[in-house]
Nucleic acid binder design. Sequence first.
RNA 1: GCGGCGGUGGCGGAACGGUAGACGCGGAGGCCUCAAAAGCCUCUGUCCGCAAGGGCGUGUGGGUUCGACUCCCACCCGCCGCACCA
Length: 825
Amino acid sequence: AVWARERTWEVTNEGTAPSASGEGARAESSYVLEMLPYPSGEPHIGHLKVYSVGDAIAHYHRRLGRRVLHPMGYDAFGLPAENHAIKTGVHPRDSTAESIASFQRQFRRWGISIDWSRELATCEPDYYRWTQWIFLELFHAGLAYRKEAAVKWCPHDQTVLANEQVDAEGHCERCGALVEIRQLEQWFLRITDYAERLLGDLDEIAWPEHVKTMQRNWIGRSEGAEVTFRCEELGSDYPVFTTRPDTLFGATFFVMAPEHPDVMRLAQGTEHERAVSEYINQALNETNEERGNAEKPKTGVPLGRTVTNPVNGEQIPMYVADYVLMEYGTGAIMAVPGHDERDYAFARAYDLPIRRVIEGPASAASEADPSAAETTEEEGLPYPGDGLLVNSRADFDGRNNREALGAIVEWLDREGKGHASINYRLRDWLVSRQRYWGCPIPIVYCERCGLVPVPVEELPVRLPDIDDYTPKGRSPLAAAEDWVNTTCPSCSGSARRETDTMDTFVDSSWYFLRYCDARNEQAAWDPAALREWMPVDQYIGGVEHAILHLLYARFFTKALADLGHLDFQEPFQALFTQGMVTKDGAKMSKSRGNVVSPAALVERYGADTARCYILFIGPPDQDADWSDEGMEGVHRFLSRLWRLVVETAARGQGASMPASQPLADDDLKLMRKAHWAIEKVSGDLRRFAFNTAIAAVMELLNECSRLRESVGIETLRFSLSTAASLLFPFAPHVCTDMYERLTGARVWEEPWPQADPALLESETYELVCQVNGKLRDRVQAAADASAEELKALCKAAPNVQAHLDGKELVKEIVVPGKLVNLVVR
RNA sequence: GCGGCGGUGGCGGAACGGUAGACGCGGAGGCCUCAAAAGCCUCUGUCCGCAAGGGCGUGUGGGUUCGACUCCCACCCGCCGCACCA
C-alpha cells in the first residue's frame, strides 16, 4: 500500500524534465528490463520466475544508489486472443483487457517494483501509432518491401508465417499444423542487409554464449565464391554459390532446385520435359518434413541440357533434384561427387562420373599399393577433407587445396567467371499476416498511384471493429468495407487499405524504447530520454526468444540508428536467460494437468515465499523442477526468521551497531557471520546466484538462532536486520516489516550493506594438514603465522605424525591461510 | 552430422586447482504435549570398525599437478539449438 501510495518505484526523466535541484551529481542510471508478457489468461509460473529475478536485480541496483528504470507492459496483439474470439465471439480487445487486468493484479500482489507510470500495451493506438511510424520509416528507407515469394502458409491459422515460426519438421509454431508452401505477395523487412552487423556486433555484448551461438547459426554466414555456369543452348547464365571453389575441377554435373524458375524452360522441347514436370509437381507437393529428411535416397531427373564448367570448359549434364534448396544460395549447385557426400549419393544413384581432385589419405594408401589402385579408383571417396590438388590445372595441382582456394577465386575473378562471395542462411523477415488482431500496415493501394504510404500525420491507422473473425484465406479486415475503402493520400482518388496486419514480433521489437518516454504524444520518443536510459543494462527473459525476438530487436535498433533516430547499435547490453520451471520433469501444461498456479501459491503462502522459493530452487538460468516440499522449506525459513525478529524486536528497537571494540566470543562470532553474509550475498547477486544468496541468509539465521541467548541484544538486532536487508530483494514484504520492527527504518531507502573488512578476517583459522594430498588432521593456526610455523604445526598434529612415521619427507607445500601438504615416500 | 549446455548423496543443489556434499528437502532418533499439529534438539554419502580411525567415492578411461568435481586428451549418456545450407 505504501509503495502504491507513494509511487515509490517511479522514476522521472532528468534529461528532459527541468531538473529539480539544479546541480548536484546525478545518480548513475540503470535500466533493468524483463521481457514483456503476452497477456493470455493468468500469469503462469514462468512469469513468477522472470519477474522475481528481474525485481531482485532492480532492487539491488537501487540500493547501490542507482536510479532504476523498471517498467512493465503487455505484448497484447496476437493469435491466441483472436482464436479465442473466433471460438467465443468475444472481441480480442475485451479478452486481452481482462487478461491484462489479471496480470496487473498479480504483479501488485507479488510486490514487483514496477514504474506503473510507463505502462503500455502494444494493442493501444497510442502505441501502435508509432509501430506504424517505424514501419513507414523502414519503408521509406527501402527496408520494408513487397515481394511475391514461396512462403510458408499455415492451413489451420490461415496465415503466412515467418521462417522462424516454422519448426524443424515443418509445423506451425503456434498450432502445430503442417505448413504448406504458397506463392503470395507479402511484406518483408530487409533484415538480410544487416546480417554482417548482426553477426559482428555479437562480440560487443554481454550475452550468454549459447544465445550468441544460436544467433550465429541462424545467420549462417558462409564464405566462398559465386561461380557462373553457362548453358550455351539457351544462352543463359547460372551462378552458383560454393564454399569449395577448390573442387570446381571435380564438378561432373549441375543440379537445380525444383522451385528454380528456369527449370521448366530448360526442359522444354527435350525428351525429359514430361518427366521434369512430373518431378516438380511431386516435389512441390511434398511436405517440408518429407523433403527435409537428409536420410532419404536422392532423387532427381535430367533436364536434357548441359552447362559449361567455367574452369575447364567441360559440358556437364543438368539435373533437377529436390536435395537442392531454392532458399539457400542461388537455387542451383555445381555437383562435386568426389568431395561432397550428397553429390556422391546422387552420382551413385544415377551413374554419373565421380572424379577425385584432392588427394586424401585413402588415395595415398592406394599409391603405396599400386596393385589396388586400378580397381579402387573411387576408394576413399567422397572425401570432404583437405589435401593436395590433383586432376585440376597445372598451376594448381600439387598445392594444398586450402592454400590454393584463394588463388583459384582470384583466377576466376580475372577471367570474369566468378568472384569471392559470402552467403547467409538468414532470410528477409516476412511480416504481413492475414489476421485481424494485429497492427494495421499503414499503406493504401490507389488505382492511379499504386502503393502509397499513409502520411505520418494521419497515423494511427486504427484497427476497426469487425463481427466475423473467421479466417478465410484473406485478412478478416477485408470484410470491413467502410474501413478498407478510403481515399488516396496522394491523388485523393479512391483507394483501398492494406488489409494485412503486422507480425506481433514487430510490436515487441521496439517496446523497450517506448518505455523511456512512454507518454510522449508528439513522437515515438525524445532522443534525450533514450540517451538517459538506453541501452538496457540488464535484459532478462526466456531462452525461447534466443533467435526471434532478440534478433528482430537488434535489427530494429540498427536500422533505426542508421535512420538517425538512435545513437547506439545494440539494445540489450547484458542478457540473462532464465530456465524453465517443470513439474515432475515435464513442461507444465493444462493438458498434462500439472500446472502450478502462482495465484494459488501466493494466496496460500504469500508472495515472499513464492518468490524466494522460485529463486532458491536452483541456478535461475537452468531448468528446475517444482517441488511442494521445497516450497514448504522456504516458508519455514521465512517463518523462523520472522519469529526470531519479532521476539528480538520486543526487547527494544534501535539502529545502533554493537560497540565494535571489545567484541568477544559469541558476539564476535555472530558479527563475523553477518559480515560474511553481506559479502556473500553481494557477490552472489552480481552473478545471478540467488540460490546461494538465500542459502547464505539461512546460514546467518541459523547462527542467530544458535547464539540468541549468548549474544548482546545489539549484536542480535544488527545480525537480524542485516538478514532482512539482504533478503529484501527476494522477499520484499516480510523484510520491510522485519527491518522496520528492528530499526524503525524503511529498508528500501537504506543503502546496500557494506561488509567491514576487519570482520571478514579472524586471527585464527583451521589449518588443513595433508599428507600426500590426503586430509589427515586440522589444527588451529594464527592468521599471521609464517610458513615455517605452519609446517611445524602440521608436523605436530597427532594424526599427521601417524602417517609420517618412518617415511622420508620429500616435499612441503604451504598455502598460507589454507593448508600444509607434506609429501612423503 | 554440426554447434552449445550438462552428468556430484535418497532428492534439488554447494564447492577462486586446496577440508567434496554448503543450504534446503526427505529420512532416523529425541524433547515438548493427555495426544496430535506446529516448534525445538541430535544424527544422516558409502563400506569396515565399539571407538579412534581407515578404505572407497563427483558418468568412463587416460594425462598434467604436491594436490583435480574443477585443467588437458579420448569416449559414454542426457538435454537444447541448427540441419540435404552446397
